[in-house]
Design a protein around this nucleic acid. Structure first.
Lengths: 232, 232
DNA sequence: ATGGTGTCTTGATCGAGATCAATGAAATGA
DNA sequence: TCATTTCATTGATCTCGATCAAGACACCAT
């Protein structure tokens, strides 16, 4: 379960539920950096990303900007119980979402098990992602954080035919998601490239070697101690 | 919403729903360090902590032990979409939970709005806590992490009449929750004590000054540079 | 008593990552 | 076209926290 669940809902994407859902849908478009909704209305809707990229951001008084989550095309999300200083913004131009009243949708779900399933899956996936995020922030080194993040994006984003995946977000966004500085993210990417873990085609398009589940140490352990003795 | 929500459900604790829920309840007791359920059955139930303390733990192959969440007396939780290597354990002896079949409880909730409200609140609180946890792990310094953690515990745990709060968990548990080493947690507590932010009565019982929302720097910025010039 | 174990604290050292700074590359707009 | 701004990379320095190490303290059993 959880991590192995489908990325998006096949049945929905085949269009089988469009007819039922379409009349409840309101289209919301936003360009780069714009919020998609007034904060106090956020929790009243279910959202479905149709194109572009969306981020859930929390601003600190100090100016630090914590990105809690990204939502990619075909993903559903709902903003239950989030803190008041959280906003949902478009990351890039041309971002479009479908907006559905929660009351309407959840009433539909009582009658229609397929719709109920979409909502339940979306919830579970949001929970699972939050846990992965906690785990990733918890005790990992910067290079591992970045590698795991890229691997997650590879799984959630469509790849080009040549296997390269275009990332829709900037280094700053990655840094604010991973709790690192931009410089550290950039350095981590350079290290991963030098280790042939990722291959670049331009700055934001890359191919990620996956299946590496182990941590691999960044540096070899230092020599015991530079005492008087020296190697010939 | 979210952070300001009631800690536990008043109506439930007044016993008004006991009569309805009691027949679905199975009592589960566990002593220190014991799991409360087989991992593969975890997601089949709603849980209600009645006494003691429970932790949600994820073990890494390397031996690191990430504590995702604590659940305190009177709190409900459900294990949707969690990863397979997660276990729920009692933190201390004498931990007792009520276990309710999800199917049963959620069918009850369709008819009974009060029960539905309990479950919805519990879900929202779990989401909100996960977000707070992410935020706390994200970019904070160790002393701030510990202070915020203590403040959360103050809000969730009952205080003694003299205002001191007994913490049910060890330094190791705090460390594994906050992504720090035990030593760093211990040092952070010493620093907070020396700053009069917390006051101790024994190692695990303390009073926390709250309302501090600001970060306060650990060290004063270093002098510009020890150049040739020297202060008289 | 004595030893054992688990928990908590403090000290010393070192490395990973933040920060400051500079430069380069790419997008945007006049 | 050039100017401006945003984004990305790399280097140098310094600090926070991990790690290793030792000791204090409580609790238990024998």
């Amino acid at each position: 379960m959880g991590r192995r669940a489908a990325i998006h809902d096949r049945a929905f994407d085949r269009g089988e539920f469009h007819s039922q859902l379409a009349k409840w849908r309101t289209s919301v478009a936003a360009s780069k950096g714009q919020p998609i909704c007034q904060p106090n209305r956020l929790a009243d809707y279910w959202w479905h990303v149709e194109s572009g990229l969306v981020r859930q951001v929390r601003l600190q008084s100090s100016g630090l900007r914590c990105i809690h989550e990204f939502f990619l095309p075909h993903e559903w999300f709902v903003c239950d119980g989030i803190s008041e200083d959280t906003v949902i913004e478009a990351v890039c131009d041309g971002t479009v979402l479908g907006r559905y009243g929660r009351f309407d949708l959840e009433r539909l779900a009582v009658e229609d098990v397929a719709i109920a399933q979409i909502l339940r899956d979306a919830r579970n996936r949001q929970t699972a992602r939050a846990e992965e995020h906690i785990f990733n922030l918890w005790h990992r080194r910067s290079v591992e954080k970045v590698r795991v993040f890229l691997d997650q994006m590879r799984a959630r984003l469509p790849a080009r035919s040549d296997g390269f995946t275009p990332l829709p977000m900037s280094r700053y966004d990655m840094a604010d998601y991973l709790g690192l500085s931009v410089e550290t993210v950039s350095r981590a990417l350079s290290i991963l490239r030098s280790r042939r873990v990722v291959e670049f085609d331009g700055v934001r398009t890359l191919k990620i070697a996956h299946g590496l589940d182990d941590h691999f140490p960044l540096f070899v352990p230092p020599p015991p101690r530079a005492s008087g003795a020296r190697v010939a």
